[in-house]
Design a protein around this nucleic acid. Sequence first.
DNA 1: AAATCGTGGAA
DNA 2: TTTCCAAGATT
Length: 288
Amino acid sequence: MPDLATPLIAWYRENARDLPWRHPEFGAWGILVSEFMLQQTPVARVIPHLEAWLERWPTPSSLAADAPAEAVRQWANLGYPRRALWLYRAAVEIRDRHDGVVPRDVDALLALTGIGDYTARAVAVFAYGDRHPVVDTNTRRVLARAIDAKSQPEAPARRDLAAMDAILPRDDNEAAIVNAATMELGAVVCTARSPRCEACPVARVCGWRVAGYPDTGDDRRKQARYEGSDRQARGAVLKQLRDAAPQPIPFDEVIAQWPDAPQRDRAIDSLIADGLAEASDDVLRLPS
DNA sequence: AAATCGTGGAA
DNA sequence: TTTCCAAGATT
């Protein structure tokens, strides 16, 4: 297998974007918050929200001392609001089980609410400098193309974890750079649509390129339509709750003009089931 | 283990 | 206009 680490390190040194969480003094809590926000939300949308969040809650304990409703409200329109609730719960767990310090151990991180294989290792690597494979969707695409000669990832995520580990240098610091560089390459060069192979440091050894860009894979189901969906209804309810907070909203007035009444009721029920809303008497409110 | 979960910008 | 996609996690 060709050496990917060396060209990736050299490329990253010259081309890495200057992102807030890459500054050495950013801190483990800042990294953790950034990783929560970056789960399925683009970098450009995250940055201003991240800075506001950390200004308001500079530590896990400061967030844990507030109400979950405030976390959901501060999350604003970042999307997937369960992440706000999970981040809040993780802050409580960090306060209660880790003396308010973001854990360094991967298994301890995995035990926190809302943290999975990607986020746990991202924190251990980017906040603490330990050597672990960090595999996100960008990394998976780069590995699929460079190593498997596929246009899109097909291998199980578990296998990509091992594949990434096999690429990492022994040195902790260099391993962290290769993790970041692989993600960065997937984000800005080896993109899902119209990759910029002319700017790619590993183009010469890329299996997909060498094979003539075979279009295997790409059998992904297309994303469900958002307009008219239950998700849109949930979003509308939660936005109304956010805008009214701390005032609750009478049930009768919850997206009262919504064209599909059963869908509205499903949205309210599912938000309550998720812990993103609370019902009491005849009103609906953010979780206390 | 496939389905579900927001939102906005770019192609 | 519609479609695609974006540093995933959970059930």
